[in-house]
C-alpha cells in the first residue's frame, strides 16, 4: 500500500509537470504576438518591445521555460491580458465562489444519485424503476447550456419562483453587504450573522446548482442501479441469502458496499464534467466564479489567464483521479 501511494504520488507530480510544460509550449507557439495583445491596440513598436521585456519574452525559449516553472512553483502564473492583474490572485478570488456551486451540486448529485439508484434497484422492474431510468436517460442527454436556459425560462420567466441571475439582489449589496472572510458567500453571511443576505444568496444559488447537478445525478443513479443489480445476482449474495441473512442487511451491507466501488472510478470524470459545466452555468447565470472567468478568458483570447485556468482544471482533475484511485483501493481489496 505504501509503495502504491508513493507510485501514485510520483506519477501525479509527473503528470502535473507534463501538463505545465505542454501548456507553456502551446502558448509560446501561438500565431499572435502576446506582447502586442498585452499592451492593447495601436501600440508603437518600441512600446511592444518594452512590453515584451516586461513579460520576459525577449529571452531564449528555454530560459523562459525555466523562469516560468520557477514562478509556477511559487504560485505565480503571470499577469492576465484582460484584467491586468496576477492570474493567481484572480483565481484565488473566484475559486471560492465556484466551490460553493460545485460543492452543493456534487453533494446533492452523489447522495441523490445513490438514493435513486438504490431505489430503482430495490423496485427492479416496477414503474418506480422505469421512471428513474427515464429520468437518468433524460438527465445525461441534456446539454448543460440548454438546461440552464430552460430553467431560467421556466422558473424565472414563466413561474417567477427564482431570480434570473447573479449572486444576490443588487439592493441587498448596499443594505447588507457580504463581509469577505472565506470568500464562500453562504459561509461568510452565516458567520457574520447576515441572515437577509444568507437567504438571498440561498435563493439565487438554487437554479445554477440544479443545472449543475442534473447530469451527474443521472450518471450516478444509473451506475448505482446497474452495478447493484449486477452485484445482487452474484453467487456470494445467494450464499448469504441461503445462510439466512435478512434482505435489508443483504442489500445495504453486502450489496451496496460492493456496488459503490465501480461508481468511485467515475468520480474523477464527474469532477471534470462539473468543472466544465460551471463555465456555462456561471456564464448563463452571471455567477462571478472561476467558470465565468475561464469562459471570458476563452472568448477574449486571454492566454495567460487561460494557462492558469488550464493548469487549475487539469490539476483538480488529476488530483481527483488520484484520490479516487487511492480510495478505491482502500475500499475494495479485490483491486490489485
Amino acid at each position: 500500500m505504501g509503495f502504491f501511494l508513493f507510485k501514485r504520488f510520483v506519477s501525479l507530480i509527473g503528470l502535473l509537470i507534463v501538463l505545465s510544460t505542454l501548456v507553456f509550449f502551446f502558448t509560446r507557439s501561438l500565431p499572435g504576438d502576446v506582447a502586442a495583445l498585452y499592451i492593447g491596440g495601436n501600440a508603437k513598436p518600441e512600446q511592444i518591445e518594452r512590453a515584451r521585456k516586461e513579460l520576459g519574452m525577449d529571452k531564449p525559449l528555454i530560459v523562459q521555460y525555466k523562469i516560468y516553472m520557477e514562478k509556477l512553483v511559487q504560485g505565480d502564473m503571470g499577469i492576465s491580458l484582460r484584467t491586468h492583474r496576477p492570474v493567481s490572485r484572480d483565481l484565488m478570488e473566484k475559486i471560492p465562489m465556484s466551490f460553493e456551486l460545485v460543492f452543493w451540486a456534487l453533494l446533492i448529485a452523489v447522495s441523490g444519485g445513490i438514493f435513486f439508484g438504490v431505489t430503482a434497484a430495490c423496485f427492479h422492474g416496477s414503474w418506480i424503476d422505469e421512471t428513474i431510468k427515464w429520468f437518468s436517460s433524460a438527465a445525461v442527454s441534456t446539454p448543460i447550456f440548454f438546461l440552464a436556459l430552460l430553467l431560467q425560462l421556466i422558473f424565472f420567466n414563466w413561474l417567477g419562483w427564482f431570480p434570473l441571475q447573479g449572486r444576490m439582489d443588487s439592493f441587498l449589496e448596499f443594505t447588507n453587504p457580504i463581509k469577505n472572510i472565506t470568500g464562500i458567500s453562504m459561509v461568510d453571511t452565516l458567520i457574520s450573522g447576515n441572515f437577509p443576505a444568507f437567504l438571498n444568496v440561498g435563493w439565487h444559488i438554487v437554479l445554477p446548482v440544479v443545472s449543475l447537478l442534473i447530469g451527474p445525478l443521472g450518471i450516478i443513479a444509473r451506475m448505482i442501479r446497474s452495478s447493484l443489480l449486477d452485484v445482487m445476482s452474484q453467487d456470494y449474495i445467494l450464499a448469504a441469502r441461503a445462510s439466512g441473512i435478512s434482505e435489508g442487511v443483504l442489500f445495504f451491507y453486502y450489496g451496496l458496499r460492493n456496488a459503490l466501488s465501480p461508481v468511485l472510478t467515475v468520480i474523477g470524470l464527474l469532477v471534470a464534467l462539473v468543472l466544465l459545466a460551471t463555465f456555462y452555468v456561471e456564464m448563463i447565470f452571471n455567477w462571478p466564479g472561476v467558470g465565468y472567468y475561464s469562459l471570458a478568458a476563452i472568448m477574449s483570447l486571454d492566454y495567460t489567464a487561460l494557462m492558469g485556468v488550464t493548469l487549475m482544471v487539469g490539476a483538480v482533475y488529476m488530483i481527483a483521479n488520484t484520490i479516487t484511485d487511492v480510495v478505491r483501493r482502500l475500499v475494495d481489496p479485490r483491486i490489485k
Binding site: S137, A138, S141, T142, P143, F145, F146, L149, L150, Q152, L153, F156, N157, L164, I284
Partner: peptide, 23 residues
Amino acid sequence: APNILSEWWIAIVPGFAMFIVVI
C-alpha cells in the same frame, strides 16, 4: 440566449432538437 426571456424559441428549439436526438 440573449432573447431567452422574450423570443424563447430561438434558443429552446435547437436545444430541444439536440436533447431529442441525443436521448
